[in-house]
Amino acid sequence: MSPNFDTGRPSARPPWRPGPAGLALFALLSGCAQEGDFGRSKPSAWNSLVETTGTLAARERSEPASAFPFTDDERSLRDRAWRFLMPAAGRDAFTDVLANLTRSRLLPPSWRTADPADYHDTLMGDAFRSPVSRYRRLSEDIGTDARLIPQFAALAARVKEADALRLRSLPFVKTLDDRDVRHAAMRVAENRCLIAWVRLETGLRAAGYRYALEHLLIEAPGPEAVQVERTLAALDGRRPILDPLVPPEAEIRCGLLPEADLVAAPVAAAPVIAKY
Rank of each mutant, 00 (worst) to 15 (best):
M1N: 14
S2H: 14
F5D: 06
D6H: 07
T7D: 09
P10Y: 01
S11M: 13
P15V: 05
W16H: 03
W16D: 06
P18M: 00
G22D: 13
L23P: 10
F26E: 03
L29S: 01
L29F: 02
L29C: 02
L29N: 02
G31E: 00
F38S: 01
R40Q: 13
P43I: 13
L49N: 13
R59I: 05
R59K: 15
E60N: 14
R61P: 06
P64S: 02
P64E: 07
S66A: 09
P69R: 08
T71F: 10
D73W: 04
E74D: 11
D79R: 14
R80F: 15
R83A: 12
L85F: 06
P87W: 11
P87V: 07
A89G: 09
R91G: 03
R91T: 15
R91Y: 14
D92K: 03
D92F: 03
A93R: 05
F94C: 10
D96F: 02
D96N: 07
V97I: 13
A99D: 14
N100E: 07
L106H: 06
L106Y: 00
P108Q: 00
P109F: 03
W111L: 05
R112W: 02
A114R: 13
A114S: 10
A117F: 14
D118P: 00
Y119P: 05
Y119R: 13
Y119L: 05
T122C: 06
L123M: 06
L123D: 12
M124Q: 07
M124W: 13
A127P: 12
F128V: 06
F128Q: 04
R129M: 08
S130W: 07
P131V: 09
P131E: 03
Y135F: 15
R136P: 08
R137F: 06
R137W: 06
G143Y: 01
T144Y: 06
A146Y: 03
R147K: 12
L148Y: 15
L148W: 15
Q151F: 08
Q151I: 05
A154F: 12
A154V: 01
L155M: 12
A156F: 03
A162L: 10
D163V: 10
L167C: 10
R168T: 09
R168V: 12
S169A: 15
T175I: 00
T175R: 04
L176A: 07
L176P: 01
D177G: 10
R179C: 10
D180H: 05
A184S: 15
A184E: 09
E190D: 11
L194R: 09
L194V: 02
R199E: 08
E201A: 07
L204S: 11
A206G: 14
G208F: 10
R210K: 12
Y211D: 12
A212R: 00
L213E: 12
L213H: 14
E214H: 11
E214M: 09
L217K: 08
I218T: 08
G222W: 04
A225P: 03
V226A: 08
V228K: 02
E229C: 01
R230V: 03
R230A: 02
R239T: 14
L242S: 09
L242C: 05
P244D: 09
L245P: 12
P248N: 01
E249I: 07
C254E: 06
G255H: 14
L256V: 07
E259M: 12
A264F: 12
A264E: 11
A264Q: 15
A265H: 09
P266C: 10
V267N: 12
Y276G: 14
